[in-house]
């Protein structure tokens, strides 16, 4: 490449460098201030565990849980629609940080298809259950839309098949 050519390219290179730098700066700026943004939820949005009841003695290890939602809609994961979210069932665990995606493991079950009920298998003993809604990116809303944490007592099923 001749010297003249290199010089002719210079302005282009400078502009390109400025664009890259600006993009990097913008990205750094946004992650520093507001790490993932929480979707707003109305104050009357209400989530509860419809079944089992708090304190229930459940005589099966295969337990149906249904999710109650009022003044709020259900949408599959990946959907960003105001005033909707999908359910997460927290089992034997406290609330996760509310400003980041809810973990996905055996204590944090995701219902990303938009399910409103499930069956869970729990060993006999005392367990806690709590519902926590999250937006399309699995981040809880602001204010968080969550149920009361309930306690259930699971007993081994009698010989007959479970309900």
């Amino acid at each position: 490449m001749s010297k003249r050519h290199t010089l002719a390219c210079m302005p282009v290179l400078v502009v390109a460098w400025m664009l890259v730098a600006a993009a990097a700066w913008a990205q750094a700026g946004s992650t520093a201030q507001d790490a993932p943004k929480r979707s707003p939820a109305p104050n009357d949005a209400y989530v509860y565990i419809g079944w089992p009841n708090d304190g229930e003695v459940v005589r099966t290890t295969h337990i149906k849980v249904w999710f109650g939602t009022r003044n709020f809609g259900v949408a599959p994961a990946g959907t960003s629609k105001p005033n909707t979210g999908h359910h997460h069932l927290l089992i034997d665990v406290g609330l996760p940080p509310l400003d980041e995606p809810i973990p996905s493991d055996k204590n944090h079950l995701h219902f990303g298809l938009g399910q409103t009920e499930t069956f869970i298998d729990l060993p006999p003993g005392t367990h806690t259950l709590q519902l926590l809604m999250a937006d399309g990116d699995h981040i809880p809303h602001d204010p968080p839309v969550m149920s009361k944490k309930i306690t259930i007592h699971v007993q081994a099923a009698p010989n007959v098949a479970s309900q």
Binding site: W66, G73, V74, A75, P76, T79, K81, T84, F111, L113, G114, Q115, T116, E117
Partner: peptide
């Protein structure tokens, strides 16, 4: 309203 073995999605959301 109860739904088993399927999911809820708002109108206009195809899944």
């Amino acid at each position: 309203m109860g739904l088993s073995n399927a999911g809820i999605a708002p109108a206009g959301i195809e899944k």
